Amino acid sequence: MPAVIAVAGGLKLAHVKPTEASSDREPLPVSTCQAVAEGWQSDKVQLASAKPVNREQVRISFIGHSTYLIETPEGVTIATDYNGYIGNNDAPTVVTMNKAHSSHYTLKPDPAIENVLPGWNPNGGPIDHDVVVSDTYIRNVTTDIRSGFGSREADANSIFIFEVAGLCIGHLGHLHHDLEDRHIAQIGRLDVVMVPIDGGLTVGHERMSDIVKRLRASVILPMHRRGTPINAFLDLFGEDFDRQFREQDNLTVTLRDLPKQPTIIILQGV
């Protein structure tokens, strides 16, 4: 994976994975999520680590804002949109970051973090992550962000997908625009999706509800919840979506126990 170091002007990649194929390059991991979405023989698909897909529990905890902590069966911990704060938890194994606002990244990540994955390329152009960490395969799909005076900065946000225990878990990051067909194809199947619902700083509620419906995940976890009341988002879904307000800040999911009806779950936190 690319090593990442913090410098005065921001994060600097010590190495960026080449975009063109080369003979000495390691083969990329296989995406089970894309394989299932495209109708491949998914029962024969294995990750690049050669470990077969399993169906064990994954725990997802809401830390706050856009940060969720994902805990895998083999003990990998992943903090999304990491800004330096993860509550009382130990330093995670992996952090992902996005740069639209300082609340979604830090230029001084804890040195104990083994894998720091920025959603943008400090050297310019798109960033491309294909990382296997123990039982988890992590990849990204880049999108654009709004910049000054109404312009757009290409490939400056990443949707991260975490493939673990047979589950496909997606985090939309600081999404600023609709997803095109190519984005949907690159993302593949999602069982769980973390969605910003502020209604203004990211995609508006109506457009975000359309995105959620297109992604067809079984579990929808709202985040970035400051701003317009959450009911304004929930009201855009019909009776085919269940809604659950939990008293806990976490849940466990397995592939075999996913709800049959798409379910929006609001965990405790802000």
Rank of each mutant, 00 (worst) to 15 (best):
E163Q: 08
L117G: 05
A185N: 14
H104E: 06
C168I: 07
T106V: 06
G84V: 04
L107R: 13
P92K: 09
H205R: 05
L215N: 06
I187T: 04
Q186D: 14
T96C: 02
M194C: 10
T93S: 15
P196S: 05
H174W: 10
V141G: 05
N88Q: 09
V193W: 04
K108R: 14
S134N: 14
P92D: 08
E206C: 08
I78W: 00
H171M: 00
D144F: 11
G170L: 00
G204C: 03
I184R: 12
F149E: 12
L117Y: 10
I78V: 15
D90G: 13
Y137P: 02
M97T: 02
K213L: 02
F162Q: 06
V94D: 03
T96Y: 03
V116F: 04
D155V: 02
E206Q: 15
I145M: 13
L167R: 09
N157S: 06
P122T: 11
I169R: 08
S103E: 05
D198W: 07
I86V: 15
V203L: 14
Y85S: 14
L175N: 00
A165H: 07
L190I: 06
H104R: 02
D155W: 08
D191C: 08
D210R: 15
V94Q: 10
T142K: 09
V195W: 06
S209R: 12
V212K: 02
G199D: 05
W120I: 09
A154I: 00
V76N: 06
T136V: 15
H101E: 10
T136C: 11
I161R: 03
V133I: 15
G173I: 09
H174R: 01
R139K: 14
A154P: 00
P126K: 12
D81E: 14
G170S: 07
T143W: 03
T142Y: 01
Y137M: 07
I211V: 15
F149C: 08
P109A: 11
Q186P: 00
I159E: 04
F160L: 08
G200S: 14
G173D: 01
R152Y: 12
A156Y: 09
L179F: 05
D90K: 14
P196R: 06
P92Y: 00
A185G: 07
T77I: 01
D90V: 08
I127C: 05
D110S: 11
L175R: 02
N98K: 01
D144P: 09
G173W: 04
V203G: 08
S151D: 12
G119W: 07
S134E: 13
Y105T: 08
M208T: 15
G84D: 06
D135W: 04
I169Y: 00
D135V: 07
N89E: 08
D135R: 10
W120G: 07
E153V: 13
E163K: 02
E153P: 00
G173K: 01
Y137F: 15
